[in-house]
Simulated assay, not measured.
Amino acid sequence: MLHYDINDQLQLRMFTIDDAEALFQLTMASKPYLREWLGWLDYIETVDDSRQNIEGRIKGLMETGGYPKSFAIVYQGELAGTIGFNDINRGIKCGTVGYWLGQDFQGKGIMSQALETLIEYGFRDLGLNKIEIRVATGNVKSRALPEGLGFKQEGVLRDAEWLYDRYVDHVVYGLLRAEWTG
């Protein structure tokens, strides 16, 4: 099983079916907090929904030649969130990153460390030339991550996502392999 020990408290590892209950509980516990910026939360109603999500992640291994596209973020032995490539365009060697962290795990530097590790993985192991992150313009916390890691703002996509009762614009950030200094 592929995993990265970032430090003695934090690791990224592949999801397993055994994570379904923990993923569901984390999602439900953080749902009101996460709902502001994640449009899929109302589709998660049972542990089986989380299990199907994990099964889809595992099946995605075929798309990457056996390399996982997404990881469980484990902090002090507990599932804290997820990070990975929502999409990989093999033609232009570009991956688009998505991430979320449970509310109780915010403010500990977990996501910035996880993102640095994912960037390294994308450039080194997946052979990507570019990594993109798309974030709602109003999501200041999430925007701080790519900005702090040297991503360049490439533009704004208007009405890029429907969030329950409104459209939100997305800022598109990009980082080229040649620009990565990690």
Rank of each mutant, 00 (worst) to 15 (best):
N53Q: 05
L2D: 03
A144Y: 02
Q106I: 06
K93Y: 00
V156E: 11
G84A: 04
R90Q: 10
Y121L: 02
G150F: 03
L10W: 04
T64P: 02
I17M: 15
E21F: 03
I73M: 15
L41S: 13
L2K: 07
E120W: 04
A144V: 06
R134K: 11
A114D: 03
I58F: 01
M111V: 13
L149Q: 15
E21N: 06
K69V: 00
R158E: 06
K59S: 14
G182W: 02
L118S: 01
E36G: 02
R57L: 12
L149D: 11
V172R: 03
E63F: 01
V171Q: 08
Y75N: 12
Q103G: 08
D48I: 00
E21C: 00
R13L: 07
G91S: 09
A136S: 12
L10Q: 00
D49R: 11
N86S: 04
N7D: 15
Y75S: 08
E55S: 12
A136H: 07
I17Q: 12
H170Q: 04
F123G: 02
E147W: 01
Y75I: 09
H170E: 09
S50L: 03
F15G: 10
S142K: 10
A29D: 14
I17H: 10
I58L: 07
I6F: 11
Y99N: 12
T137F: 01
L149M: 13
L118T: 13
N7I: 09
M62A: 13
H170A: 09
E132Q: 07
D104G: 05
K31P: 05
G95E: 00
D18M: 04
E36Y: 10
L145C: 07
G95R: 02
I73L: 13
G182S: 12
L175W: 05
W180S: 08
S142Y: 01
